[in-house]
């Protein structure tokens, strides 16, 4: 294995993994912090950050062509339709 290969095959995933574990520590700690405000929001924001790390680096959206990114985005946009419109009912009952 060359040096470059080692950096690419092992180094980069390891760095991402370290970031994920750090985020896990943050979210776990904050959840148990007595009296911390906006707990659900923070937990979800950290989950989103972790998801972004996984999608960008592990799932390699960073190197992907625009077409592939568009496919990834499509599901999210359509899920937004589902949420926004359904809650236009629940929030106004």
């Amino acid at each position: 294995m060359t040096r470059e290969q080692r950096a690419q095959v092992i180094g980069q995933p390891l760095r991402v993994f370290a970031g994920l574990l750090a985020l896990l520590l943050v979210t776990f700690g904050y959840a148990y912090l007595p009296g911390g405000p906006l707990k659900t929001e923070v937990a979800l924001a950290v989950a989103a950050a972790k998801a972004l790390l996984i999608a960008t680096f592990f799932m390699q959206l960073r190197q992907a062509v625009w077409l592939v990114r568009l496919a990834a985005l499509g599901g999210l946009v359509w899920a937004c339709f589902l949420y926004i419109i359904t809650f236009s009912d629940y929030l106004t009952r």
Partner: peptide, 15 residues
């Protein structure tokens, strides 16, 4: 537009 199947179901008038 799916909620037009639910006009009489009890969803909110706004929806």
């Amino acid at each position: 537009v799916w909620g037009h199947h639910m006009f009489v179901s009890g969803q909110s008038p706004f929806a």
